[in-house]
Amino acid sequence: MRVALFITCVNDTLFPQTGKAVVTLLRRLGCEVEFPRAQTCCGQMHLNTGYPRESLRLARHFVDVFAGYDAVVTPSGSCTAMVREQYPRLAHNPHFAAARSGARRLVPTRAGREFAAAVDEVASRVYDLTEFLIDVLEVEDVGAYFPHRVTYHPTCHSLRGLRLGDRPLRLLRAVRGLELVELPGAEECCGFGGTFAVKNPAVSAAMGTDKVRNVLDTGAEVLCAADNSCLMHIGGTLRRQRSGVRVMHIAEILAQTEGRA
C-alpha cells in the first residue's frame, strides 16, 4: 500500500519526533511510506481565524500534492478533520470556489466543479493515524512496549469531529507494559482551540488549568493524545507548573518496542 505521510506544519516544525515515530510504526506494520516534499499546511488556522480565501489556496496546494495515493496518514485529528470535513465545504461553496453568477445564484464553473471533485476524491482517503491503524490496517496490537502509567486525552476534533471513539484506547490497551488510567472529564476541551488560545487567553488558560488538574489527579506519568497542538497547550501548562508529567503523541508510544523503551 502506497501511503503518504502528511506530517502537518506544526509537527514538521516543532515535533519531528512524532513524524519519525509514525514512519517507524507504519514501516513496522509493512507500509511503504512516502513523504511528498511539496506538502506544507492544511490551512485550518486560516479558516478558523476567518480567512477562508487563504485557506482555500492551501487546500488547492494540498490536493495537488496528495492526489494519487492509496492513503494519506496524518498524526493530527484536527488536520484530518479539516481536510475531510472543511475542504468539501469550501470546495462546494460557490462563494469561494470558482463560480460565475447564474440567473438567481452563483453557479460553479467547470474549474470549480473539477476542484470540488478532486477534493472529494482526496479527502475520503485522508486518515488520522489511529483510524488508519484500526480501520485500514485492522491492527490493535502494533507490537509496542511502553512500561508506564499513561492517560489519554481525546481531543475535540478526534472525539466529536472524526468520531474516533475508542480506537486510540484500543491501541493503547494492546501496548505491553502500559497501564492505562482513565482521565476524569476527558471529553472536555483543553482550551487550545488554535487562535482561541491567543484571542481569549484567560478562558483558554482556565480551561487548560482544569484539564491539567484532571491529568494530575490520574497519577499518570505520561499524557498522550492524537494531536500535538492540544498537547503543546496542556504540556506547556504542565511544564510551567513543574508537574513532572510528560506529554507524548500517541504515535510515539505506539512506536516504542522492547529494548527501546
Binding site: P16, G19, R37, A205, M232, G236
Partner: peptide
Amino acid sequence: AWTDTRDVPPVPKEPFRDWWDRTEG
C-alpha cells in the same frame, strides 16, 4: 498571551523534512 501560563515548546534542532532528507526517511 500564550506564555503567561504556558511554556513555549522548544524548537528542535532540525525540522522533520530535513531529517527525512538527511536520512532518506
